[in-house]
């Protein structure tokens, strides 16, 4: 049948859900092996953090879309967690191959890494559904409140930390569709062009540090 914008958006949702049907919202056996190989086992922190962010996400989702939608928020969050664990496993496999390392204790005990990865996974889920809402309800649909960078505020994340995850996320998840990769690319641009330069941004601290220890590249001379 003729592919209308709504049908295309519904297809994206079905594709996303289809990709995740066989993925659990708990860490897989392979992930548990990576966790056990860590100097400090991160399993408990990871599952506890997912539970905490699940509650925050559902509450914020209901505030943004409507109180009767808290259950819907939970469903969205579960899809995000499934994608989060799927991509984490894929990232660790490629890092293991690249670095010939099996102990990822520092990375897997880094709360910012986990929160940024979960935020990126949720952004993929939210953008998939918002894409449908926009085409189905127009800009009046309350779900448009969930557009990027809504998720950064929900998790109180520095934009620059999510920026660091996006490229590796795209590399680690080959089933991402072209329009979703484009969307994540636009998120990167939005971060780099504006959000990352807000006064409380992490970027200023990093620039200051790189200037102090001289690791920063020399600024290019102004064009004549």
């Amino acid at each position: 049948p003729q592919q209308t914008p709504i049908r295309a958006a519904m297809y994206s949702i079905q594709q996303l859900r289809g990709e995740l049907t066989s993925i659990s919202d708990q860490p897989s056996g392979i992930l548990m092996v990576y966790f056990k190989n860590c100097t400090v086992d991160p399993s408990e922190d990871i599952t506890k953090r997912v539970d905490q962010f699940g509650q925050i996400f559902s509450q914020k989702f209901a505030q943004a879309v409507g109180q009767r939608c808290e259950g819907l928020g939970k469903k969205r969050f579960t899809l995000g967690v499934q994608l989060y664990y799927k991509v984490m496993e894929s990232m660790l496999k490629s890092e293991e191959k690249r670095l010939s390392v099996q102990n990822f204790s520092k990375l897997l005990n880094n709360a910012t890494f986990h929160t940024s990865l979960l935020a990126c996974a949720l952004e993929v889920v939210l953008a998939t559904y918002v894409g449908y809402s926009l085409k189905n309800g127009g800009s009046e649909s309350p779900e448009t409140n969930l557009c990027f960078p809504w998720i950064l505020d929900v998790f109180q994340l520095h934009a620059f930390d999510v920026y660091k995850v996006i490229e590796s996320f795209i590399k680690a998840e080959p089933t991402l569709k072209h329009d979703m990769i484009e969307h994540l690319g636009r998120c990167e641009q939005q971060i780099m062009e504006s959000i990352a330069w807000k006064s409380d941004s992490l970027l200023f601290e990093l620039l200051r540090q790189s200037r102090e220890d001289g690791t920063g590249e020399q600024a290019e001379p102004p064009a004549t």
Binding site: S94, E95, L99, F104, K106, L107, K164, S168, K171, I181
Partner: peptide, 21 residues
């Protein structure tokens, strides 16, 4: 995917980006 501009070097990955290499 040719529209997305990959910028990481071969020797860079998520471990380096989060200072966990």
């Amino acid at each position: 995917t040719q529209d997305y501009h990959f910028g990481l070097e071969d020797h860079e990955g998520i471990s380096e980006l989060f200072d966990c290499d």
